[in-house]
Amino acid sequence: MSTPIYVQEVSLRDGMHAVRHRITPEDVKRIVIAADEAGVDAIEVAHGDGLTGGSVNYGPGSNSDWEWIEAAASVIKNARLTTLLLPGVGTIHDLKRAYDLGVRSVRVATHCTEADVSAQHIGAAREMGMDVSGFLMLNHMAPVEVVAQQAKLMESYGAHCVYITDSGGRLTMNDVRDRARAYRDVLKDETEIGIHAHENLSLSVANSVVAVENGVYRVDASLAGHGAGAGNCPIEAFIAVANLSDFKHNCDLFKLQDAADDIVRPLQDRPVRVDRETLTMGYAGVYSSFLRHAENASARYGVDTRDILMECGRRGLVGGQEDMIVDICLTKLAEREAAGA
């Protein structure tokens, strides 16, 4: 019996981190057209840190969210146009503006223990008639029972779906299985579960498959794995496995491969792959979007990127605390000076 899944393409949101939020509206259109024609269910568009994430802290976008969303909306035909909102960064006003441009689905993201800050935003999105998901980020940082209760909160605010969001690419396959089952145990039957994987430990496809085998319906994936850190679950590889695993979806494998290799990979100014830096993120459980910021700070202050990332993990930094990367470098330099003096 085949298992139905819902595939959301995230290279125009999570993938923004990989290109430091720099992409032309023309390239946005090319990707949307290709992903739409390849049969994905939803396409997410926003700055990597969600609506109005463009900032000094996270990196200014080459364009505003509105320009990118308009470009996507002008060519999308079948897939659902969706976006991301991080309470504390973007606001309900921003969400309304996205809605006015044609966005009909949103994920409201909080750290995995802070679901209650999303109540206002999930409620507002429901009032607008949108499809709404809760996105519990850095899911590995709290015990299974805790995140399941947080998922329950998001459901109570009106979320149609709640995600296991592995922002650090830190979950192993057993972890994903346990979390999917724990969500399923506490959530209503009609509430969907989603998986958002990162490739940092080279487990994104495996984790997504395990998730589906344990009751997850919505799967995030991106062309060529285009995303923060070592990237997201590469959609072409996932769909290949989905075919072999008898998952029911509407995607065309070869079209996805063509879009990944011909359109997306050439846009990357830093390879999106498992290497010493991105593997360290998964190992230390660091938010994947810290990568490019840590590499920049490393170049400027002469501190090894891996030392920065390990310290991010040790300090227990959460999504959004990119400002602490430079703080870590300056602290390490001061320690070095003190030791040398």
């Binding site: 504390g88 930094l317 605390q321």
Partner: peptide, 13 residues
Amino acid sequence: KAIIILNPAEPPL
């Protein structure tokens, strides 16, 4: 522009 982050680390930061 203002951004606020809640961090649950223990001991509290």
